[in-house]
Design a protein around this nucleic acid. Structure first.
Lengths: 344, 344
DNA sequence: TTGTATGCGTTATCAG
DNA sequence: CTGATAACGCATACAA
């Protein structure tokens, strides 16, 4: 649709297309006057390079793929939001994708991104080792990749996460110190993060001489946050109640479930925190307004996004420079905010 | 990076590139056997067409630009989420952008999308008539555009919104019938939707013989939901209190403020709904869990997203077909869910 | 410093 | 039905 091209400029200015291209690309081998003339004309006629031709020629884009499990999770939303903020001043454009925790959808997204020849990718994988081969292939072929959040993954690259076990350890310990002994742990899919978080939980129990109970690990797998996981949660709690094993505290190790549990407990006429104390794992700024205000383990999301972007840019800039695998894992600290849901 | 191209297939199969192209594009002028052979080979070697070459040649893409004010608003988030869902089975890819309610950022996004030669755009404009000229230009030049949510806008095209005044009328009326007489109306930027919503509010007052008070229209403009609008809200309410004009009910006409008001009232030690009843305007599924559970006017978001996508596909398919301006405005019905915050 | 020629991968036009 | 050829807009090696 854009009528003004390098060729048309060349004709209008009685120059060759090559010269126009050089002027536009700020080449050194061009006379200052000519360059200025071209630039002026280009600006006046609102020249916009054809991305597709440019890319076809150079094999490069300014696109950054962002692959996450869900958009409708406070953590990922905040992450993307911040990513947009830091990417804006740069020349890069974000192309977000959701995987719904499914490797097949993730593969689709990655193949598409490869086809779009994206300059780099920031990803929180669907699960441990999902699409490792594909990611490795892309990574080695000049498309740098940054892993975040779910960093237990086979790919060798920069990884940005939090120290999972430390936070759940502290949250659990806090509850133990308040006298809670039957603490359940709520988690989603069985991925690396979950394991670490469970480890922290278990260690806290161990160090405080409280026996670990297999029944208190509540897995609720889901591929869509809109599923009827409320019902599943309710069922699981009902089972525990029937076994006379109703917990007196719940630590959540995952985002989506952290808020749903409030509603579920409410519908079962269980009081929070009197009957069951709750500490969630989420970044929603609504935590203060919930009934009751929800204690939360919060990730340094914006910091993570900023770091992810910076590391990616660094990798993209250095091209196939060193090739040396000097990749690092960044483990940031999460913070727990204690609110009413875990008091008493 | 993709090594397998039409040319390479042609060489391998001892055919011409033209034939391969025809086979791949399901042309009629090709022998069935040849086509099958090509397709089999392509599949086996995982052929993926080069988007850029294809686009350079055809001048078309499968990209759909999505331009919204904020991602971090429950309504827009739900909209995009649903959009992804309906767009997935199709061959289209979404390219989302945020404008932060700023026309300049919106322009940036639109120019980028134009440069990317997107096949169509779904947009909730930054404000009335923002970038009208640019949008018109793109629209006329073969890039169909669908307006949603903020449909008071100069562009002639399909528009999808809700019947704003009707819902605020009913919400206001409900409060009036419960005996509330000093009802304030909370709104954001002064755009078309706001005006309609205020109209519904005013009409309800009028029909129930309650005088309209200018002070009860509370504008809180913002360009970023993370701004300190809590403080501004607090200030405004403090002013009303000083004037001895503290309302006994608040209807919110905008998303972001709907939840913040709960926290602000709480920090002022104002009881909800005893002192002030509140009805929000938001789609968050957390409404049930808030303290207190928040009555909300909810938009049929998923329906809107689905319709937007379908209408856009229709326009994109018909090319520069008729050119007839047979555009419609779709006004869907919102529903109000009454919860504790407006009881008594 | 500038121009000419070539090709990126694809589709379209024309012959055969 | 198939093949040769040109062209999309751009960047670059090479020639001038």
């Amino acid at each position: 649709m854009s009528e003004v091209t390098i060729k048309s400029i060349a004709k209008a200015l009685d120059l060759s297309p090559a010269t126009i291209s050089r002027a536009l690309n700020d080449s050194h081998e061009i006379k200052r006057a000519t360059k200025d003339r071209v630039l002026a004309y280009a600006k006046k006629h609102n020249y916009r390079p054809n991305t597709f031709a440019k890319n076809l020629k150079t094999g490069k884009t300014n696109l950054i793929g962002v692959v996450i499990p869900f958009l409708s999770s406070p953590f990922f939303l905040e992450f993307i939001d911040e990513l947009y903020r830091v990417a804006l001043p740069s020349n890069y454009t974000l192309v977000p994708f959701q995987t719904q925790n499914q490797e097949a959808m993730e593969k689709e997204a990655l193949l598409f991104l490869r086809q779009q020849n994206v300059a780099g990718i920031i990803i929180s994988p669907a699960h441990e080792n999902s699409n490792v081969a594909l990611l490795e292939d892309m990574h080695l072929n000049g498309c740098p990749i940054i892993l975040f959040d779910r960093i237990q993954h086979g790919l060798q690259t920069h990884k940005i996460g939090i120290h999972n076990s430390m936070e759940t350890y502290q949250a659990t310990e806090t509850l133990l110190k308040k006298g809670r002994k039957r603490i359940a742990f709520l988690c989603g899919k069985d991925i690396g993060n979950t394991k670490d978080r469970i480890r922290g939980y278990k260690n806290a129990l161990l160090n405080h001489g409280v026996a670990f109970l297999e029944e208190y690990i509540i897995y609720v797998d889901y591929q869509d946050p809109n599923q009827a996981i409320d019902e599943e949660l309710k069922t699981r709690l009902g089972e525990l109640k029937d076994k006379n094993l109703l917990p007196d505290a719940i630590v959540s190790g995952t985002d989506t479930l952290s808020i749903k549990i409030l509603g579920v407990l409410g519908s079962l006429a269980i009081r929070i925190p009197e009957d069951i104390a709750v500490i969630g794992f989420t970044n929603t700024n609504l935590a203060d307004y919930l009934a009751p205000a929800l204690s939360t383990i919060q990730q340094p999301t914006q910091e993570m996004a900023k770091l992810a972007f910076e590391l990616l840019v660094e990798l993209m800039d250095k091209k196939s420079d060193s090739g040396a695998a000097d990749y690092k894992s960044f483990l940031l600290a999460a913070t727990t905010v204690y609110r009413k849901s875990s008091l008493i």
